[in-house]
Structure formats: structure tokens, C-alpha cells
């Protein structure tokens, strides 16, 4: 355990405003000398739930990796800004770029394993990673996308029905909308206003995986029983069509919620990024 520690990165403005994102750098006890790993959690989760409590931070630290974790706006210990712009995927990607740069990530240089950054995303975090990798080819080395999908359930979310339901209890007809709202309400620590702002902002920039696809090697991972990730093969095909080297892994018996702790998932990710 000696030398393994975690520090909070200090805050500063990006494009004139402080995004207020909670960033932590987790140092390994014995650094393997490889580039840092950026972790991007899913909707209605947090770095703590998605990566810390599930054992990912420990697994990556034991592999000698330096980790950058960030809570999405309105999630975990990040601020819940009032303005919608803070929640747009493009703004969040700009914040990621600033965060990894602040953490010391430098553009990839052939033959130098300490340059660039590896990315692990889960669910919404995989969508954001997909776009981040597509737009930052000189920085992103490899990516592991968990519970990924070609679809965008947040863009398809029925905001009007959710607001009616919150106002007077009118039942929500769309099962996906009802499920996502229930997820957002499960954690008392979630700011519901911020969750709905994020959804509204995502509706402005819905996921289109063919529009910009990452070219670096990808590992796509999902639970065998993960209905949200049923389109993973299509996503793999899109990346392959754009020239990416894609591997996929299905974890037997696991769902969208419980694949996160899977040893097989972590071991595959550590191995895939360990080059």
C-alpha cells in the first residue's frame, strides 16, 4: 500500500467559467510508467459508485496505473450549474481535455508509453469517451467502453412526461423514460434538476456514433444480459468500418448494473490498456 494515494485536482476556469467538476488523481504504489487512465462514469452514477466502490481504482492501481477520475456535472461531488451549456456533451468533452492536460497527459509520441491517455467509460461515459476519442486522436491511445450502445436513451427521454410525473404523479408511458427517471431518483445525493438539465442538453447533441468514430484500438464490454448494450455489435462494426481495431467481450450472466464489478471485465481492461 505504500505510496498509493489520491489527491483532488484544483479547480480553474475553462472557456471563462469554472465547470466545477470534481476531479481526483489516484497514484499507484508502483508506477508502471504507462500513460494515465481517464475514467468516465455513467448517468446517475459517480466516480465513487462506478469506479471506487466497484474496485476499479484498486485494480488499476495494482496494475501500476495512474488514474484520473471525474464526476460529471450534477453528479457525485461536482457542481450542479444552473446553465444548460455546462451539461452539453461538447462542453463536457472540452472539460475532459482540460482535466487530462492539467493532470499531465501529453500528446501521443511513437514509442513513448508515458504519452497520451487511455480512457475507460461506462454507459453514458462510453458515449462521451467514443466522441472524446474521435475528436482527440492525437491524445487518446486506447479505450475500453463498457455497456456501450449505438442508441441514445437520454436523447429519447420524454422530458415533458417526466416533468408532468414529477408535478402531479401522472404515469409515464415510455418504459425507458420511466426507468431512467427512477434511476435518477434512486440516489438521495443526486440533484434531480441537474439530471434533467443533462438530459435536456444531451437532446441538443444526441449521440450519432457514425458522425465521428474513434480510430484507436477499442475494447467493447457488456454483460450478456445487458439490454441497453444489445447494439454493441453494431457499434463495433461502425468503429471497424472507420478503421479501428475492435475487440468485444460479453460477460456471462451479468446485467447493465452488475457487470461493473466483474473481475473478467477489469482484467480484460487492464490487459487491453497495459501496452
Amino acid at each position: 500500500m505504500t505510496g498509493r494515494h489520491t489527491v483532488e485536482q484544483h479547480r480553474h476556469t475553462v472557456e471563462g467559467t469554472d465547470p466545477g467538476l470534481f476531479v481526483q488523481i489516484h497514484e499507484p504504489a508502483n508506477d508502471a510508467g504507462l500513460r494515465p487512465v481517464l475514467l468516465i462514469h455513467g448517468f446517475s452514477s459517480s466516480s465513487k459508485l462506478n469506479w471506487q466502490d466497484s474496485g476499479w481504482i484498486t485494480a488499476l492501481q495494482e496494475a501500476g496505473r495512474r488514474i484520473i477520475s471525474v464526476d460529471l456535472p450534477g453528479h457525485g461531488r461536482s457542481y450542479s450549474p444552473e446553465d444548460l451549456d455546462s451539461y452539453t456533451p461538447s462542453r463536457i468533452r472540452a472539460d475532459f481535455l482540460q482535466i487530462v492536460t492539467d493532470a499531465g497527459a501529453r500528446p501521443l509520441r511513437e514509442g513513448d508509453p508515458a504519452t497520451g491517455v487511455d480512457v475507460i467509460g461506462y454507459s453514458l461515459g462510453s458515449r462521451l469517451a467514443w466522441e472524446f476519442g474521435a475528436t482527440q486522436p492525437d491524445l487518446v491511445h486506447r479505450m475500453v467502453l463498457g455497456g456501450p450502445s449505438t442508441a441514445d436513451p437520454l436523447a429519447a427521454f420524454d422530458l415533458a412526461a417526466a416533468q408532468r410525473h414529477l408535478a402531479d404523479g401522472t404515469p409515464i408511458n415510455d418504459a425507458s423514460t420511466a426507468g431512467l427517471l427512477k434511476m435518477a431518483q434512486l440516489l438521495p445525493s443526486n440533484n434531480l434538476f441537474a439530471m434533467l438539465s443533462l438530459i435536456e442538453a444531451i437532446k441538443e447533441e444526441p449521440f450519432d456514433p457514425s458522425e465521428a468514430a474513434p480510430h484507436m484500438p477499442l475494447l467493447l464490454v457488456a454483460g450478456e444480459k445487458d439490454e441497453r448494450a444489445a447494439t454493441m455489435p453494431e457499434l463495433a462494426a461502425i468503429a471497424a468500418k472507420h478503421g479501428a481495431n475492435v475487440e468485444t467481450l460479453l460477460i456471462p450472466g451479468r446485467t447493465h448494473t452488475n457487470v461493473v464489478t466483474s473481475r473478467a471485465f477489469k482484467e480484460a481492461a487492464v490487459e487491453f490498456l497495459g501496452v
Partner: peptide, 14 residues
């Protein structure tokens, strides 16, 4: 040392 993987109504954890 991680001893068990658990799932709650909110998340999965070690």
C-alpha cells in the same frame, strides 16, 4: 482484500 461482489438496488460493489 476484496472478498465479495454484491448488488444492491442502486449499484454493484466489492
Amino acid at each position: 482484500q476484496a472478498i465479495v461482489e454484491l448488488e444492491t438496488s442502486k449499484s454493484a460493489l466489492e
